[in-house]
Design a binder for these strands. Sequence first.
DNA 1: TTCATTAAGTGCTCATTCTACACTAATTAT
DNA 2: ATAATTAGTGTAGAATGAGCACTTAATGAA
Lengths: 229, 229
Amino acid sequence: MLNNYNTEDKVLLSVDCIIFGFDNEGLKILLIKRDFEPEKGKWSLMGGFLKKSESLNGAAIRVLNRYTGLQDIYMEQLYAYSEVDRDPVDRTISVAFYALINIENHNTALIQDHEAEWFSISKMPKLIFDHNEMVAHAIRRLRYRTSTKPVGFELLPEKFTMRQLLELYEAILDKELDKRNFISKINSLDILVKLNEKDMLSSRKGSYLYMFDKEKYDAKLLNHFVLNL
Amino acid sequence: MLNNYNTEDKVLLSVDCIIFGFDNEGLKILLIKRDFEPEKGKWSLMGGFLKKSESLNGAAIRVLNRYTGLQDIYMEQLYAYSEVDRDPVDRTISVAFYALINIENHNTALIQDHEAEWFSISKMPKLIFDHNEMVAHAIRRLRYRTSTKPVGFELLPEKFTMRQLLELYEAILDKELDKRNFISKINSLDILVKLNEKDMLSSRKGSYLYMFDKEKYDAKLLNHFVLNL
DNA sequence: TTCATTAAGTGCTCATTCTACACTAATTAT
DNA sequence: ATAATTAGTGTAGAATGAGCACTTAATGAA
Protein backbone atom coordinates (compact mmCIF):
# COMPACT_ATOMS: atom_id res chain seq x y z
CA MET A 1 0.00 0.00 0.00
CA LEU A 2 1.35 3.33 -1.08
CA ASN A 3 1.56 6.30 1.12
CA ASN A 4 3.68 8.40 -1.11
CA TYR A 5 3.50 9.56 -4.67
CA ASN A 6 7.02 8.63 -5.72
CA THR A 7 6.13 7.47 -9.17
CA GLU A 8 4.63 10.77 -10.22
CA ASP A 9 6.33 13.49 -12.26
CA LYS A 10 7.54 16.62 -10.51
CA VAL A 11 7.67 19.94 -12.29
CA LEU A 12 8.85 23.49 -11.82
CA LEU A 13 6.23 25.93 -10.69
CA SER A 14 6.70 29.64 -11.04
CA VAL A 15 4.69 32.74 -10.29
CA ASP A 16 4.48 35.81 -12.52
CA CYS A 17 3.18 39.13 -11.28
CA ILE A 18 1.25 41.69 -13.25
CA ILE A 19 1.77 44.86 -11.26
CA PHE A 20 -0.71 47.61 -12.00
CA GLY A 21 -0.17 51.24 -11.18
CA PHE A 22 -2.10 54.37 -12.05
CA ASP A 23 -0.95 57.93 -12.62
CA ASN A 24 -2.23 60.92 -14.53
CA GLU A 25 -1.24 59.27 -17.79
CA GLY A 26 -3.39 56.22 -17.15
CA LEU A 27 -3.14 52.60 -16.18
CA LYS A 28 0.35 51.11 -16.22
CA ILE A 29 2.18 47.87 -15.74
CA LEU A 30 5.63 47.40 -14.27
CA LEU A 31 7.94 45.27 -16.42
CA ILE A 32 11.54 44.21 -16.09
CA LYS A 33 14.34 43.34 -18.43
CA ARG A 34 14.84 39.67 -17.78
CA ASP A 35 18.28 39.14 -16.27
CA PHE A 36 18.88 35.49 -17.02
CA GLU A 37 18.70 33.13 -19.96
CA PRO A 38 16.71 32.30 -21.95
CA GLU A 39 15.38 35.54 -23.37
CA LYS A 40 17.78 37.56 -21.26
CA GLY A 41 17.30 41.27 -21.90
CA LYS A 42 13.75 40.92 -23.14
CA TRP A 43 10.80 42.56 -21.39
CA SER A 44 9.09 40.27 -18.96
CA LEU A 45 6.74 40.14 -16.02
CA MET A 46 8.32 39.84 -12.62
CA GLY A 47 8.53 36.24 -11.66
CA GLY A 48 10.19 33.62 -9.57
CA PHE A 49 10.10 29.94 -8.80
CA LEU A 50 7.94 28.46 -6.08
CA LYS A 51 9.92 27.05 -3.19
CA LYS A 52 8.75 23.88 -1.53
CA SER A 53 8.25 25.69 1.72
CA GLU A 54 5.85 28.38 0.55
CA SER A 55 2.39 28.74 -0.95
CA LEU A 56 1.86 30.32 -4.36
CA ASN A 57 0.58 33.41 -2.63
CA GLY A 58 3.69 33.48 -0.52
CA ALA A 59 5.87 33.21 -3.59
CA ALA A 60 3.98 36.01 -5.30
CA ILE A 61 4.36 38.25 -2.25
CA ARG A 62 8.06 37.47 -2.11
CA VAL A 63 8.57 38.30 -5.78
CA LEU A 64 6.61 41.53 -5.49
CA ASN A 65 8.60 42.57 -2.46
CA ARG A 66 11.91 41.76 -4.11
CA TYR A 67 11.23 44.05 -7.04
CA THR A 68 9.28 46.87 -5.42
CA GLY A 69 10.08 46.76 -1.71
CA LEU A 70 6.34 46.77 -1.03
CA GLN A 71 4.39 44.76 1.51
CA ASP A 72 0.71 44.28 2.31
CA ILE A 73 -0.37 44.71 -1.26
CA TYR A 74 -3.66 43.74 -2.85
CA MET A 75 -2.98 40.65 -4.90
CA GLU A 76 -5.16 38.09 -6.59
CA GLN A 77 -4.37 34.79 -8.24
CA LEU A 78 -5.34 34.80 -11.89
CA TYR A 79 -4.69 31.58 -13.74
CA ALA A 80 -2.21 28.74 -14.22
CA TYR A 81 -0.44 28.64 -17.59
CA SER A 82 0.72 25.20 -18.49
CA GLU A 83 1.28 24.70 -22.20
CA VAL A 84 3.96 22.06 -22.51
CA ASP A 85 6.37 24.19 -24.50
CA ARG A 86 5.69 27.54 -22.88
CA ASP A 87 9.21 27.72 -21.45
CA PRO A 88 11.86 26.32 -23.80
CA VAL A 89 14.32 25.41 -21.06
CA ASP A 90 12.37 23.20 -18.78
CA ARG A 91 8.82 22.13 -18.14
CA THR A 92 7.49 25.02 -16.09
CA ILE A 93 3.95 25.78 -15.09
CA SER A 94 3.40 29.38 -14.15
CA VAL A 95 0.67 30.81 -11.99
CA ALA A 96 -0.06 34.46 -12.71
CA PHE A 97 -1.05 36.96 -10.04
CA TYR A 98 -1.94 40.57 -10.38
CA ALA A 99 -1.19 43.25 -7.82
CA LEU A 100 -2.55 46.76 -7.40
CA ILE A 101 -0.15 49.32 -6.02
CA ASN A 102 -0.10 53.02 -5.40
CA ILE A 103 2.44 54.03 -7.97
CA GLU A 104 3.91 56.70 -5.68
CA ASN A 105 4.84 54.26 -2.95
CA HIS A 106 7.28 51.85 -4.45
CA ASN A 107 11.00 51.82 -4.04
CA THR A 108 12.34 53.65 -7.07
CA ALA A 109 15.94 52.67 -6.46
CA LEU A 110 15.03 49.02 -6.36
CA ILE A 111 13.17 49.37 -9.64
CA GLN A 112 16.16 50.99 -11.27
CA ASP A 113 18.44 48.23 -10.03
CA HIS A 114 16.29 45.72 -11.85
CA GLU A 115 15.97 47.85 -14.96
CA ALA A 116 12.24 47.88 -14.46
CA GLU A 117 9.95 50.34 -16.21
CA TRP A 118 6.34 51.34 -16.19
CA PHE A 119 4.46 50.86 -19.46
CA SER A 120 1.04 52.13 -20.40
CA ILE A 121 -1.27 49.20 -20.96
CA SER A 122 -1.95 50.61 -24.41
CA LYS A 123 1.76 50.56 -25.29
CA MET A 124 2.94 47.24 -24.02
CA PRO A 125 6.01 45.79 -25.67
CA LYS A 126 6.21 42.19 -26.77
CA LEU A 127 6.90 40.11 -23.67
CA ILE A 128 8.58 36.75 -23.30
CA PHE A 129 6.74 33.44 -23.40
CA ASP A 130 3.00 33.78 -22.78
CA HIS A 131 3.29 36.92 -20.66
CA ASN A 132 1.26 39.09 -23.03
CA GLU A 133 -1.60 36.66 -22.67
CA MET A 134 -1.28 36.88 -18.89
CA VAL A 135 -1.48 40.66 -19.05
CA ALA A 136 -4.58 40.58 -21.23
CA HIS A 137 -6.18 38.20 -18.80
CA ALA A 138 -5.25 40.41 -15.85
CA ILE A 139 -6.83 43.46 -17.44
CA ARG A 140 -10.07 41.56 -18.02
CA ARG A 141 -10.08 40.37 -14.43
CA LEU A 142 -9.31 43.84 -13.12
CA ARG A 143 -12.25 45.24 -15.08
CA TYR A 144 -14.59 42.75 -13.55
CA ARG A 145 -13.14 43.06 -10.09
CA THR A 146 -13.35 46.85 -9.90
CA SER A 147 -17.01 46.61 -10.85
CA THR A 148 -17.81 44.29 -7.98
CA LYS A 149 -15.32 44.93 -5.20
CA PRO A 150 -13.75 48.06 -3.77
CA VAL A 151 -10.28 47.35 -5.10
CA GLY A 152 -9.79 50.37 -7.33
CA PHE A 153 -8.74 52.43 -4.32
CA GLU A 154 -5.62 50.31 -4.03
CA LEU A 155 -4.32 52.12 -7.10
CA LEU A 156 -4.89 55.60 -5.69
CA PRO A 157 -3.33 57.53 -2.84
CA GLU A 158 -5.18 57.21 0.44
CA LYS A 159 -6.86 60.55 -0.20
CA PHE A 160 -8.12 61.19 -3.69
CA THR A 161 -10.50 63.41 -5.62
CA MET A 162 -13.60 62.31 -7.50
CA ARG A 163 -11.86 63.28 -10.69
CA GLN A 164 -8.99 60.92 -9.94
CA LEU A 165 -11.41 58.14 -9.21
CA LEU A 166 -13.31 58.85 -12.41
CA GLU A 167 -10.14 58.85 -14.47
CA LEU A 168 -9.04 55.62 -12.84
CA TYR A 169 -12.26 53.88 -13.81
CA GLU A 170 -12.04 55.34 -17.30
CA ALA A 171 -8.54 53.96 -17.65
CA ILE A 172 -9.49 50.53 -16.35
CA LEU A 173 -12.67 50.22 -18.38
CA ASP A 174 -11.17 51.97 -21.39
CA LYS A 175 -14.20 54.15 -21.95
CA GLU A 176 -15.39 57.64 -21.21
CA LEU A 177 -17.74 58.03 -18.29
CA ASP A 178 -20.22 60.78 -17.58
CA LYS A 179 -19.04 62.78 -14.59
CA ARG A 180 -22.43 63.34 -12.98
CA ASN A 181 -23.65 59.80 -13.43
CA PHE A 182 -20.37 58.43 -12.19
CA ILE A 183 -20.44 60.48 -9.02
CA SER A 184 -23.99 59.59 -8.22
CA LYS A 185 -23.34 55.89 -8.76
CA ILE A 186 -20.26 55.98 -6.57
CA ASN A 187 -22.12 57.92 -3.91
CA SER A 188 -24.98 55.45 -3.95
CA LEU A 189 -22.53 52.72 -2.94
CA ASP A 190 -22.01 54.74 0.24
CA ILE A 191 -18.48 53.55 0.88
CA LEU A 192 -16.53 56.81 0.72
CA VAL A 193 -15.98 59.52 3.29
CA LYS A 194 -15.75 63.09 2.06
CA LEU A 195 -13.01 64.94 3.93
CA ASN A 196 -13.02 68.58 4.98
CA GLU A 197 -9.96 69.03 2.92
CA LYS A 198 -9.35 70.06 -0.64
CA ASP A 199 -6.75 69.25 -3.19
CA MET A 200 -5.70 72.68 -4.53
CA LEU A 201 -3.22 71.42 -7.10
CA SER A 202 -5.46 70.45 -9.94
CA SER A 203 -7.69 73.51 -10.07
CA ARG A 204 -8.27 77.01 -8.81
CA LYS A 205 -11.45 76.11 -7.07
CA GLY A 206 -9.93 73.06 -5.42
CA SER A 207 -11.70 69.73 -5.15
CA TYR A 208 -12.69 67.82 -2.09
CA LEU A 209 -10.69 64.78 -1.10
CA TYR A 210 -12.31 61.43 -0.34
CA MET A 211 -11.19 58.27 1.36
CA PHE A 212 -12.45 54.72 1.05
CA ASP A 213 -14.28 53.84 4.27
CA LYS A 214 -13.39 50.20 4.77
CA GLU A 215 -15.26 49.90 8.04
CA LYS A 216 -18.46 51.17 6.52
CA TYR A 217 -18.08 48.77 3.62
CA ASP A 218 -17.39 45.79 5.89
CA ALA A 219 -20.31 46.73 8.12
CA LYS A 220 -22.64 46.23 5.19
CA LEU A 221 -21.79 42.51 5.24
CA LEU A 222 -21.83 42.74 1.53
CA ASN A 223 -19.41 40.56 -0.28
CA HIS A 224 -19.76 42.44 -3.48
CA PHE A 225 -21.65 45.20 -5.21
CA VAL A 226 -22.60 45.65 -8.84
CA LEU A 227 -21.35 48.85 -10.34
CA ASN A 228 -22.71 49.43 -13.82
CA LEU A 229 -20.64 52.23 -15.26
CA MET B 1 25.69 31.58 -17.43
CA LEU B 2 22.72 29.40 -16.66
CA ASN B 3 20.39 28.10 -19.20
CA ASN B 4 18.57 25.72 -16.98
CA TYR B 5 16.78 26.00 -13.69
CA ASN B 6 18.49 23.10 -11.94
CA THR B 7 18.72 24.75 -8.58
CA GLU B 8 14.99 25.29 -8.25
CA ASP B 9 12.56 23.10 -6.32
CA LYS B 10 10.28 20.77 -8.21
CA VAL B 11 6.86 19.84 -6.88
CA LEU B 12 3.93 17.57 -7.60
CA LEU B 13 1.09 19.15 -9.48
CA SER B 14 -2.35 17.60 -9.52
CA VAL B 15 -5.70 18.45 -11.02
CA ASP B 16 -9.04 17.99 -9.27
CA CYS B 17 -12.32 18.04 -11.16
CA ILE B 18 -15.63 19.32 -9.89
CA ILE B 19 -18.12 17.58 -12.16
CA PHE B 20 -21.54 19.16 -12.24
CA GLY B 21 -24.66 17.41 -13.41
CA PHE B 22 -28.31 18.38 -13.32
CA ASP B 23 -31.42 16.25 -13.03
CA ASN B 24 -34.95 16.76 -11.77
CA GLU B 25 -33.70 16.76 -8.20
CA GLY B 26 -31.34 19.64 -8.81
CA LEU B 27 -27.68 20.42 -9.25
CA LYS B 28 -25.29 17.62 -8.39
CA ILE B 29 -21.62 16.84 -8.12
CA LEU B 30 -19.93 13.54 -8.88
CA LEU B 31 -17.65 12.29 -6.09
CA ILE B 32 -15.56 9.18 -5.66
CA LYS B 33 -14.36 7.14 -2.76
CA ARG B 34 -10.63 7.72 -2.83
CA ASP B 35 -8.89 4.45 -3.63
CA PHE B 36 -5.41 5.09 -2.30
CA GLU B 37 -3.79 6.38 0.83
CA PRO B 38 -3.90 8.75 2.53
CA GLU B 39 -7.60 9.20 3.26
CA LYS B 40 -8.44 6.03 1.35
CA GLY B 41 -12.19 5.42 1.40
CA LYS B 42 -13.09 9.03 2.05
CA TRP B 43 -15.16 11.08 -0.39
CA SER B 44 -13.07 13.09 -2.77
CA LEU B 45 -13.09 14.97 -6.03
CA MET B 46 -11.76 13.14 -9.03
CA GLY B 47 -8.14 13.94 -9.46
CA GLY B 48 -4.83 12.90 -10.85
CA PHE B 49 -1.25 14.03 -11.15
CA LEU B 50 0.00 16.16 -13.99
CA LYS B 51 2.39 14.36 -16.29
CA LYS B 52 5.36 16.22 -17.71
CA SER B 53 4.07 15.72 -21.21
CA GLU B 54 0.65 17.30 -20.83
CA SER B 55 -0.93 20.64 -20.01
CA LEU B 56 -3.18 21.10 -16.99
CA ASN B 57 -6.15 21.13 -19.30
CA GLY B 58 -4.96 17.92 -20.83
CA ALA B 59 -4.63 16.33 -17.43
CA ALA B 60 -8.11 17.47 -16.43
CA ILE B 61 -9.56 16.03 -19.64
CA ARG B 62 -7.74 12.77 -19.03
CA VAL B 63 -9.04 12.50 -15.48
CA LEU B 64 -12.58 13.32 -16.52
CA ASN B 65 -12.45 10.73 -19.25
CA ARG B 66 -11.04 8.09 -16.97
CA TYR B 67 -13.92 8.38 -14.54
CA THR B 68 -16.84 9.15 -16.82
CA GLY B 69 -15.84 7.96 -20.27
CA LEU B 70 -16.80 11.40 -21.60
CA GLN B 71 -15.00 13.53 -24.16
CA ASP B 72 -15.45 17.06 -25.52
CA ILE B 73 -16.81 18.38 -22.28
CA TYR B 74 -17.10 21.98 -21.18
CA MET B 75 -14.38 22.56 -18.66
CA GLU B 76 -12.89 25.63 -17.05
CA GLN B 77 -9.85 26.09 -14.86
CA LEU B 78 -10.77 27.48 -11.47
CA TYR B 79 -7.89 28.09 -9.14
CA ALA B 80 -4.59 26.69 -7.88
CA TYR B 81 -4.59 25.50 -4.27
CA SER B 82 -1.16 25.58 -2.74
CA GLU B 83 -1.19 25.68 1.05
CA VAL B 84 2.02 24.00 2.15
CA ASP B 85 0.33 21.34 4.25
CA ARG B 86 -2.73 20.74 2.10
CA ASP B 87 -1.65 17.19 1.31
CA PRO B 88 0.01 15.43 4.25
CA VAL B 89 2.04 13.02 2.13
CA ASP B 90 4.00 15.28 -0.15
CA ARG B 91 4.09 18.87 -1.28
CA THR B 92 1.34 18.95 -3.87
CA ILE B 93 -0.20 21.92 -5.57
CA SER B 94 -3.58 21.20 -7.03
CA VAL B 95 -5.33 23.06 -9.81
CA ALA B 96 -9.09 22.71 -9.70
CA PHE B 97 -11.26 22.53 -12.81
CA TYR B 98 -14.99 22.31 -13.11
CA ALA B 99 -16.83 20.44 -15.82
CA LEU B 100 -20.45 20.58 -16.93
CA ILE B 101 -21.92 17.35 -18.21
CA ASN B 102 -25.28 16.08 -19.28
CA ILE B 103 -25.96 13.69 -16.47
CA GLU B 104 -27.64 11.20 -18.78
CA ASN B 105 -24.60 10.73 -20.97
CA HIS B 106 -21.89 9.35 -18.77
CA ASN B 107 -20.74 5.81 -18.53
CA THR B 108 -22.63 4.37 -15.56
CA ALA B 109 -20.56 1.20 -15.40
CA LEU B 110 -17.36 3.18 -15.18
CA ILE B 111 -18.81 5.24 -12.37
CA GLN B 112 -19.77 2.13 -10.45
CA ASP B 113 -16.30 0.68 -10.91
CA HIS B 114 -14.86 3.70 -9.18
CA GLU B 115 -17.51 3.73 -6.46
CA ALA B 116 -18.54 7.18 -7.62
CA GLU B 117 -21.81 8.80 -6.60
CA TRP B 118 -23.79 11.90 -7.41
CA PHE B 119 -24.45 14.23 -4.47
CA SER B 120 -26.80 17.18 -4.33
CA ILE B 121 -24.80 20.32 -3.80
CA SER B 122 -26.93 20.98 -0.74
CA LYS B 123 -25.98 17.62 0.79
CA MET B 124 -22.28 17.37 0.18
CA PRO B 125 -20.33 15.15 2.53
CA LYS B 126 -17.08 16.22 4.10
CA LEU B 127 -14.37 15.81 1.47
CA ILE B 128 -10.66 15.23 1.84
CA PHE B 129 -8.08 18.00 2.06
CA ASP B 130 -9.37 21.32 0.74
CA HIS B 131 -11.86 19.81 -1.68
CA ASN B 132 -14.92 21.36 -0.02
CA GLU B 133 -13.37 24.74 -0.55
CA MET B 134 -12.82 23.90 -4.21
CA VAL B 135 -16.47 22.95 -4.58
CA ALA B 136 -17.67 26.16 -2.97
CA HIS B 137 -15.45 28.09 -5.33
CA ALA B 138 -16.75 26.16 -8.33
CA ILE B 139 -20.35 26.91 -7.44
CA ARG B 140 -19.60 30.62 -7.19
CA ARG B 141 -17.86 30.54 -10.55
CA LEU B 142 -20.67 28.57 -12.15
CA ARG B 143 -23.19 31.17 -10.94
CA TYR B 144 -21.22 33.95 -12.49
CA ARG B 145 -20.49 32.05 -15.68
CA THR B 146 -24.09 31.05 -16.39
CA SER B 147 -25.08 34.69 -16.08
CA THR B 148 -22.61 35.82 -18.70
CA LYS B 149 -21.99 32.93 -21.06
CA PRO B 150 -24.22 30.28 -22.61
CA VAL B 151 -22.80 27.41 -20.60
CA GLY B 152 -25.91 26.28 -18.75
CA PHE B 153 -26.99 24.27 -21.78
CA GLU B 154 -24.06 21.95 -21.22
CA LEU B 155 -25.95 20.55 -18.25
CA LEU B 156 -29.13 19.83 -20.21
CA PRO B 157 -29.98 17.40 -22.98
CA GLU B 158 -29.59 18.84 -26.44
CA LYS B 159 -33.35 19.47 -26.57
CA PHE B 160 -34.93 20.88 -23.44
CA THR B 161 -38.06 22.66 -22.29
CA MET B 162 -38.25 26.14 -20.85
CA ARG B 163 -39.25 24.61 -17.55
CA GLN B 164 -36.07 22.55 -17.47
CA LEU B 165 -34.00 25.62 -18.23
CA LEU B 166 -35.81 27.57 -15.55
CA GLU B 167 -35.26 24.86 -12.97
CA LEU B 168 -31.62 24.62 -13.94
CA TYR B 169 -31.09 28.33 -13.32
CA GLU B 170 -33.04 28.10 -10.08
CA ALA B 171 -30.77 25.28 -8.94
CA ILE B 172 -27.59 27.08 -9.91
CA LEU B 173 -28.58 30.43 -8.45
CA ASP B 174 -30.35 28.84 -5.49
CA LYS B 175 -33.37 31.09 -5.74
CA GLU B 176 -36.86 31.02 -7.15
CA LEU B 177 -37.39 32.74 -10.45
CA ASP B 178 -40.57 34.12 -11.94
CA LYS B 179 -41.58 32.01 -14.91
CA ARG B 180 -42.80 34.82 -17.16
CA ASN B 181 -39.91 37.14 -16.48
CA PHE B 182 -37.42 34.33 -16.92
CA ILE B 183 -38.82 33.34 -20.30
CA SER B 184 -38.85 36.87 -21.59
CA LYS B 185 -35.27 37.49 -20.44
CA ILE B 186 -34.07 34.29 -22.06
CA ASN B 187 -35.95 35.11 -25.24
CA SER B 188 -34.46 38.57 -25.35
CA LEU B 189 -31.00 37.00 -25.56
CA ASP B 190 -32.15 35.48 -28.82
CA ILE B 191 -29.90 32.44 -28.68
CA LEU B 192 -32.44 29.61 -28.63
CA VAL B 193 -34.36 27.92 -31.42
CA LYS B 194 -37.87 26.76 -30.65
CA LEU B 195 -38.51 23.39 -32.25
CA ASN B 196 -41.74 22.12 -33.77
CA GLU B 197 -41.67 19.36 -31.30
CA LYS B 198 -43.11 18.90 -27.86
CA ASP B 199 -42.04 17.02 -24.80
CA MET B 200 -45.18 15.13 -23.78
CA LEU B 201 -43.75 13.49 -20.67
CA SER B 202 -44.00 16.23 -18.15
CA SER B 203 -47.52 17.44 -18.82
CA ARG B 204 -50.76 16.72 -20.64
CA LYS B 205 -50.52 19.81 -22.77
CA GLY B 206 -46.92 19.12 -23.68
CA SER B 207 -44.26 21.79 -23.80
CA TYR B 208 -42.18 22.94 -26.69
CA LEU B 209 -38.57 21.86 -26.93
CA TYR B 210 -35.77 24.32 -27.49
CA MET B 211 -32.15 24.05 -28.53
CA PHE B 212 -29.25 26.38 -27.99
CA ASP B 213 -28.35 27.97 -31.31
CA LYS B 214 -24.58 28.21 -31.15
CA GLU B 215 -24.23 29.67 -34.62
CA LYS B 216 -26.63 32.46 -33.85
CA TYR B 217 -24.79 33.21 -30.65
CA ASP B 218 -21.39 33.21 -32.34
CA ALA B 219 -22.69 35.39 -35.12
CA LYS B 220 -23.43 38.10 -32.61
CA LEU B 221 -19.68 38.48 -32.02
CA LEU B 222 -20.60 38.92 -28.43
CA ASN B 223 -18.18 37.55 -25.97
CA HIS B 224 -20.61 37.67 -23.15
CA PHE B 225 -24.08 38.80 -22.16
CA VAL B 226 -25.44 40.00 -18.85
CA LEU B 227 -28.36 38.03 -17.60
CA ASN B 228 -29.96 39.56 -14.53
CA LEU B 229 -32.26 36.93 -13.17
C1' DT C 1 -68.79 12.51 -24.15
C1' DT C 2 -68.18 15.42 -20.65
C1' DC C 3 -65.72 16.97 -16.99
C1' DA C 4 -61.71 17.32 -14.01
C1' DT C 5 -56.90 17.75 -13.80
C1' DT C 6 -52.42 19.38 -14.90
C1' DA C 7 -48.84 22.12 -16.52
C1' DA C 8 -47.99 25.47 -20.52
C1' DG C 9 -48.15 29.81 -22.18
C1' DT C 10 -48.87 34.58 -22.21
C1' DG C 11 -49.03 40.81 -20.76
C1' DC C 12 -49.51 44.57 -18.12
C1' DT C 13 -48.49 48.00 -14.51
C1' DC C 14 -45.70 50.20 -11.53
C1' DA C 15 -41.18 51.01 -9.62
C1' DT C 16 -36.51 51.48 -10.31
C1' DT C 17 -32.49 52.48 -12.78
C1' DC C 18 -29.97 54.36 -16.59
C1' DT C 19 -28.70 57.87 -19.87
C1' DA C 20 -28.06 62.18 -21.81
C1' DC C 21 -27.34 66.64 -21.07
C1' DA C 22 -25.60 72.34 -19.33
C1' DC C 23 -25.25 75.73 -16.19
C1' DT C 24 -23.43 78.04 -11.78
C1' DA C 25 -19.82 78.44 -8.18
C1' DA C 26 -15.33 79.09 -6.38
C1' DT C 27 -10.91 80.50 -6.84
C1' DT C 28 -6.68 82.43 -8.82
C1' DA C 29 -3.79 84.91 -12.17
C1' DT C 30 -3.53 88.79 -14.94
C1' DA D 1 -12.19 93.88 -12.13
C1' DT D 2 -12.21 90.29 -15.15
C1' DA D 3 -10.84 86.24 -17.54
C1' DA D 4 -9.88 81.55 -17.09
C1' DT D 5 -10.31 77.07 -15.18
C1' DT D 6 -12.17 73.11 -13.06
C1' DA D 7 -15.69 71.68 -9.36
C1' DG D 8 -20.08 70.64 -8.39
C1' DT D 9 -24.86 69.81 -9.06
C1' DG D 10 -30.39 68.00 -11.08
C1' DT D 11 -33.83 66.55 -14.21
C1' DA D 12 -36.59 64.38 -17.74
C1' DG D 13 -37.33 60.68 -20.71
C1' DA D 14 -36.11 55.86 -21.79
C1' DA D 15 -35.26 51.34 -20.60
C1' DT D 16 -35.32 47.66 -17.58
C1' DG D 17 -36.90 44.95 -13.64
C1' DA D 18 -40.40 42.99 -10.47
C1' DG D 19 -44.73 41.38 -9.20
C1' DC D 20 -48.78 39.38 -10.35
C1' DA D 21 -53.41 35.70 -12.66
C1' DC D 22 -55.93 33.96 -16.18
C1' DT D 23 -56.62 31.05 -20.46
C1' DT D 24 -55.29 27.03 -23.28
C1' DA D 25 -54.28 22.39 -24.63
C1' DA D 26 -54.33 17.74 -23.79
C1' DT D 27 -55.39 13.61 -21.23
C1' DG D 28 -57.68 10.40 -18.21
C1' DA D 29 -61.55 9.25 -15.48
C1' DA D 30 -66.35 9.06 -14.64
